[in-house]
Amino acid sequence: MYDFAYHKPASLADAVKLLADHEDAKLMAGGQTYIPTLKQRLARPSDVIDLGAIAELRGITEEAGGVTIGAMTRHGEVAESAVVRRVIPALAALAELIGDPQVRNLGTLGGSISNNDPAADYPGALLGLGATVRTSKRQIPADQFFTGMFETALERDEIVKAVHFPRPEKAAYAKFPNPASRYSMVGVFVAKTGGGVRVAVTGAGQSGAYRWTAAEQALAGNWSPAAIDGLTVDPSGLNSDIHASADYRAHLVKVMAKRALAAAG
């Protein structure tokens, strides 16, 4: 790891100011991806701004029928939250599948979505539930937030404050983990919401999480695993690596979607 100057601001305003003052500064949330990146010397920030002490970024609240989760809320807290389990059990279940218990004790929602690893789980939930990302500057719908592999709509001096998840009628997430890393090789989040059916796929796409619109259309009039039987998934644009070919990932997208639909009931 290269050395850097470390900051631990106590407020969001201070964090924004530090970011503005230091050109090569980077934000650190739970650090569960960023510290390994630093250890491998894949990043060389001048300053690291640790968001861990900013109380306003933490916490889970029930809001407008859905839940709002602070950016610095740990995966483990989401998984164990009575509120999340009651309002959107699929989201709590997804959080339980991220990393391992120790990673879940430090890793955060805000860190995960800001990094937008194409094999991360949370982007699937945000897209699948039609969540809204609240930042230090504005509100961004999930559909506009994820813009490509490790790319988001966030501006350089913009910090995720929280994510609001509307409550779906039904939802579930099915994950086929990469056997080595346990990241998502294919994860499918399905949700039946007041605004229609949403099917989000993570882990498979080269550009990160995306919505499977053909499945959404097929499910709109018939919410059941059988509704997507006739669909095929085009492997072009899907990842292919030593763990799974694009063809196999394409196959798994459908299998996971059906599992998720079966689980959602």
């Binding site: 056997p179 080595a180 890393s181 990241y183 030593i242 763990h243």
Partner: peptide, 11 residues
């Protein structure tokens, strides 16, 4: 080596 860490070598 493609399997150079526990991210890719499946223990």
């Amino acid at each position: 080596l493609l399997t150079g860490s526990y991210m890719d070598y499946c223990m």
